[in-house]
Design a protein around this nucleic acid. Structure first.
Length: 273
DNA sequence: GTAGGATGCTAAC
DNA sequence: TTAGCCTCCTACG
């Protein structure tokens, strides 16, 4: 689940359900109990996302900084909230809704300057209004165009671009026919401009649908006269987790490899080196 | 029942 | 480069 689109979606979901209202704040699991007690009964004033980081701003002037990591999840439901599972790190409960957070890598009460420090170490986020468009693209390009690191690794580096994860990385490189092992500095400027714009569009659609779909209309199974399919992560994609299967475009075999402890997927024929 | 893997990241070597 | 952390789900006996 958790790439940047998930976090922006959560920011909106928390805001819609609890924004401007007093909330009950608890930590059934216990690891966030002290902070929960301080926030309990205060108003959730605003929510914000930057890359994979989520911030819930409370009336105390402090923020809850959340990072889902690989396993974290937030689930929403209608009030009354049922007795919580003992893995729930943070529960917000209001008149109409509740939200349970489980398994986050980070769930901490932070001050404004501490929150700012998180922003400062993150790159531009295609989904943030402040970064969208040419300025964000240019900021990322300054790093990419000077780097000998592979574009696949650069896309996953949150200091370069915030919010891209393993699915969007694999898919956007496929959509642009780019070899994942190509060094950043070997990309042409207009290739990067196109990738950035595509990421923004794909991720916005990801927020809307709450899943990752990257297959162009002309390549859907219906359009190509093939049986319908659903990839096992819930969206429809070209290469992610499709190792040794046939490429939807050329029919060649999708390859996989380890890159910086993550699984990389690509089609060598469609993404030539 | 159990092992292993997953859309992430960091500290430590 | 590796181990470690957080949870849930699937595949395999």
């Amino acid at each position: 689940m958790p790439e940047g689109h998930t976090i922006h979606r959560l920011a909106a979901d928390y805001r819609n359900r609890f924004g401007g209202r007093r909330v009950r704040v608890t930590s059934p699991q216990g690891k966030f109990s002290d902070a929960a007690a301080l926030l309990d009964g205060t108003v959730l004033e605003r929510t914000e996302a930057h890359g994979k980081h989520l911030f819930l701003g409370f009336g105390t002037g402090e923020w809850v900084h959340i990072h889902l990591g690989l396993f974290g999840k937030a689930a929403f439901g209608a009030a009354p909230a049922p007795p919580p599972a003992d893995t729930v790190r943070l529960r917000l409960a209001g008149e109409e809704s509740y939200a349970d957070l489980r398994g986050p890598a980070v769930c901490a009460l932070v001050t404004d300057p501490e929150k700012q420090a998180v922003h400062d170490r993150l790159g531009p986020d295609p989904l943030r209004a402040a970064d969208a468009g040419e300025e964000g693209a240019a900021r990322a390009w300054r790093r990419i165009s000077r780097s000998r690191t592979t574009i696949a690794a650069l896309l996953m580096d949150q200091k370069v671009v915030a919010g891209v994860g393993n699915v969007y990385r694999a898919e956007v490189l496929f959509r642009h026919g780019i070899d994942p092992y190509r060094p950043g500095r070997d990309l042409a400027p207009d290739q990067w401009t196109a990738i950035w714009a595509d990421l923004a569009a794909l991720m916005r659609e990801g927020v809307r649908l709450n899943r990752i779909d990257t297959v162009r209309p002309e390549h859907t199974p219906e359009a190509m006269g093939r049986p319908p399919r659903v990839d096992d992560h819930g969206g429809e994609v070209y290469v992610y987790r499709r190792a040794r299967q046939a490429c939807h475009i050329c029919g060649g075999e999708i390859r996989t490899a380890d890159l910086a402890a993550r699984n990389l997927f690509w089609c060598p024929a469609c993404q030539p080196g």
